[in-house]
Design a protein around this nucleic acid. Structure first.
Length: 354
DNA sequence: AACTCGGGGCA
DNA sequence: TGCCCAGAGTT
């Protein structure tokens, strides 16, 4: 495997991208970048990273941030529990560790939002600790090059890949080794249309020789989507509109939305207009009739959201939203919304965006 | 072990 | 459309 490693490092030296978290060893910055990059492409995460560290340049500033401001910075990035865990962990580091980021794997691994991958990434990159990372890139590169057919989404398979990665690790420079493996998977050994023509490792690649580059790595399960129907009540008058905060164990926790009626099936329009929740917005003869928006379809990994917005323009918003939050429309852009709702807002609420 | 958490990019 | 992305937490 020395051939593999030498060729990989050579490739990395020539082809690595110039990314901001590569020019620092500040564990805080490494940590933030790793959390943002969980299940997120570099191209998508990069602008969020830049803005995030500008807003929160160190762990103390982050620990002092308000929840809403933090979520606003994360708006649109998805997997919002990452932001919550980041916040909680920043407080722990700021208080219990006096702002000094722990440097051993076990302690780092015990922090909220940091699993096996992220702990290994932080301690290897920031502190040079001999820990091997296993992420989607590593699964792909190792399964293809070595012809490992164990599924990557079962405990047994994960254990196998972890062992192989640890055996392969260059203990002289674990951070560089880990990043080289991942960068190679991201740029050359890609999920589809891998660059085998220009690959420096092709001569030893099991998948290439056996024409298995389309079938490796192996996954045992496949995802299935369920469809949910969301009907949002946009109750407003000239100055104000009603929103509420999402709680409970569901998507978009701690983001805001308009008062919601959810169904497992599409609602008939007449039925919709007679919905009890619409009565919360007392419609009287001085108000305009409800307007029902087009259907917004929002694809997520495990579900498809089909949403409509029922907009009621009141002459004067009554005090009948006990669990809602009454805000000035001019402030609506300071709250974090799911992308689906943000899209609606941008088209239907004039004013300064961000 | 199986589910669930988002959003965007790609063929 | 289905799959994937510098995965982690919950049940």
């Amino acid at each position: 495997m020395e051939y593999f490693k030498e060729a990989l490092y050579q490739w990395y030296h020539c082809h690595k991208r110039d990314l901001p978290w590569r020019s620092t060893r500040d564990p805080y910055l490494i940590w933030v970048s790793e959390i943002i990059l969980q299940q997120t492409r570099v191209d998508q995460g990069l602008p969020y990273y830049e803005r995030f560290i500008r807003q929160f340049p160190d762990v103390h500033v982050l620990s002092q941030a308000s929840d809403d401001h933090l979520m606003k910075q994360w708006e649109g990035l998805g997997y919002y529990s990452r932001a919550r865990h980041l916040h909680a962990t920043a407080k722990i580091i700021s208080e219990r560790y006096q702002g000094k980021f722990p440097s051993d794997y076990a302690t780092v691994r015990s922090l909220k939002g940091i699993g096996d991958y992220t702990a290994a990434a932080i301690v290897s990159i920031a502190f040079g600790a001999p820990c091997a990372v296993v992420d989607g890139n590593v699964y792909r590169v190792l399964s293809r090059f070595l012809g490992i057919k164990d599924p990557i989404d079962t405990p047994g398979g994960k254990k196998r890949f972890q062992q192989v990665a640890e055996e392969l690790l260059d203990r002289n420079n674990p951070g560089m080794h880990n990043q080289a493996l991942m960068e190679f998977g991201a740029l050359c050994c890609t999920p589809r249309n891998p660059g085998c023509q220009t690959c420096p490792l092709v001569s030893g690649c099991y998948a290439f020789q056996h024409k298995l580059k389309e079938t490796l790595p192996v996954k045992s399960k496949r995802i299935q989507r369920k469809i949910r129907y969301f009907y949002f009540l946009v109750a407003e008058d000239k100055e104000q509109v009603i929103i509420e905060k999402r709680t409970g164990s569901d998507i978009w926790k701690h983001l805001y939305q308009f008062p919601l009626l959810e169904q497992d099936y599409p609602a008939d329009e007449q039925l919709l207009l007679s919905m009890p929740f619409l009565n919360r917005s007392t419609v009287n003869h001085e108000d305009t009739l409800p307007e029902i928006s087009r259907e917004y379809i929002h694809q997520l990994t495990h579900q498809e959201i089909r949403a409509r917005f029922i907009r009621v323009k009141h002459r004067r918003l009554a005090d009948n939203f006990p669990d809602g939050i009454r805000i000035n429309k001019a402030e609506i852009h300071t709250f974090a919304f799911p992308v689906l709702i943000r899209n609606y807002i941008q088209k239907n609420f004039p004013g300064e965006h961000r």
